[in-house]
Each structure stands twice: as structure tokens, then as C-alpha cells.
Amino acid sequence: MNFVIRRIAFYLVAFLVAATVNFALPRLMPGNPIDVMFAQQNSTLTPEARDALIATFGFASGPLHLQFLDYMKSVFTGDLGYSIRFYPQKVNQVLAYALPWTLLLAGTATLLAFCVGSIIGTFAAWRRGGMFDAVVTPVSLALQATPAVVIALTALFIFGVALKWLPTGYAFAPALDPAWSWEFFGSVALHGLMPICSLMVVFVGGYLVTMRNNMIGQLGEDHVTMGLAKGLSDRRVQLNYAARNALLPSVTSLGLTLGAILGGSLVTEVVFNYPGLGQTLYIGIVTRDYPLIQGQLLIMTFATLLANLAVDLLYVFLDPRLRKA
């Protein structure tokens, strides 16, 4: 229990650091981001109109420490200000619409990549040096080193444009209205298939190689030799003796790769025109919508920390030693 409380305290501080960075960045940059931003919108604003707009969007003036307190208050009450591109919507509303799509995309892809990678990694390690290992390991190394952009663009070209098997954009057919109907879910699944699969392909290699290498380490341990000497079946030694222990470092790496997965999901969404956080962030970047961009960083940090906490809890479940401490 102590362990969990310590972790929560750590994540809270980490979130504070991220929020502080977010606060400091626009103030450290050369030039005035507000000018850049409004220059993009239109250049014919009168100074009075500009001041009024600045006030509306919540760019506070005044002493720095008071600004900081105001900012922290608004962050912890979940008020991220107004979006400029989607005015008069607030940043929260824009993000709240996009978040579920990203969770669907990144969550499904992570789960698939972790399970498939760990299972294949276990078998590759069991027969290391064999045909299966000789093919699977280099291929997953290659996949691991290929950027999400490349895989997404290639998939889009092959399955979307050349073969025309799958839709090339959006989360569901534009003619449909979101509803609890089979037709709608079918459309969501069809549109999600290619982004999810290409995101999964990006990350499956990493989990596979991690699991394989941990597993090889475990197979040299005494308890595995003892299991074999007792005459237990291969399957039992492989799964209950070696794989269970080898899974622990994999779970840690699952927590640490979550940030990378969100990043990969950003890019994949842009390529497939998928209406998640990544697509929204892209629009924010193109139109220099700073409140939106900053809100993204906060919400993504929050999501990553939450997921890391979930991984910690999973760790307590997997590793009995932590339960006693």
C-alpha cells in the first residue's frame, strides 16, 4: 500500500513539473506568441480589439507569480481556456470530443501489440537460434526501428489507395450519425482497422524483443533447470516458470512506452485523418492555436501518468513481493 501511495505522490509532482514547463514555455520564447498567433488570424485588428481578444482568451498580465497561481488554479479545476481555431468552443470541449477516439486507437493497438509481442517473444526465446527465431527477431527489430509515419503512409498507400480495400480517413462513414446501432459500430470498426493495425505493427517489435531477451535470461536460471529436472512438461516450465518472471520487465517497459505510443498515435491519426487528439493537435499546430496545443500536452501527460499508475498496480498484482512491503 505504501508503494502505491509513494507512486501517486511521484506522479502528482511529475504532473506539476509538466504544468510548470507548459506555463514557462510561451514566456521564455523570443518574441510574443500572442502576436504570432493573432498575426495568423488576421492583420487588420485594432489594438483595442486585440486587447479585448487577449483578455477573452485568458492571457493574463500582471506579476509572474500571480499569473502562475492563476494558471495552476485553472489547470486543477480543468479549465484550459478557449480554443482559437474552434472559438467559441473551450479547449476542454474540443479535447473531450477527440480523446475517446485516441483512447480507442492507442488502447486497442497497445493491448494487441503487448499480447502478440509477448507471446511470440516467449516462443522465439524457447527455440532461440531456430528457424522461427531467426526470422521473427530481425523482422521485429526492423519494425521497431521504422517510424510510425512510414508504416502508416505505406499502409495507406497499399490498402487504401492501390487496393481500395479500406477507407482512407475519418472514424466512421460521414453519412452516419453516432448511434448505438450495429451499422455505426461496424463502420467504426472498419475505419479503425487500418490505423489500429499500423500502430500495432509499429510497437509489436519492441515488446517482442524485450520479452525474448528477458525470457532468454530467465531460461538460464536455476529454477528453470529444476523445473525441467523434475520432469514437468515443457509448456509448464515455459509459461509458469520462465514467462511469468520474464513478464515483469516487459510490464515496466509497457509503462515507459506509453508516451511513445501516444506519440505514434498522433502521427497515425494525422496520416489517416482520424478525429483523435493527434488530428486536433495537428490542426492546432497548423493554425498556431497555442491554448489548444498546451491543453494537449497537459491532457496527454495526465493520460500517460494515469496509465503508468495502472501499470504500477498491475505490477503489485504480478509481483507478490511488493504486496508485503
Binding site: A14, A18, L25, L281, I285, Y290, Q294, L297, T304, N308
Partner: peptide
């Protein structure tokens, strides 16, 4: 080190680069 490790890299980089122009 631990704090930097848990903050998602790409979104952070995007924010910094966006402010840099």
C-alpha cells in the same frame, strides 16, 4: 530523470517546436 521519463516526449517536443516557429 524519472520525471522526464514519464512525461510523453513527442507531445512535449511538439509544444516546444510550435512555440519556436
Amino acid at each position: 530523470t524519472n520525471v522526464v521519463l514519464v512525461i510523453p516526449q513527442l507531445p512535449l517536443l511538439l509544444v516546444i517546436a510550435a512555440f519556436m516557429g
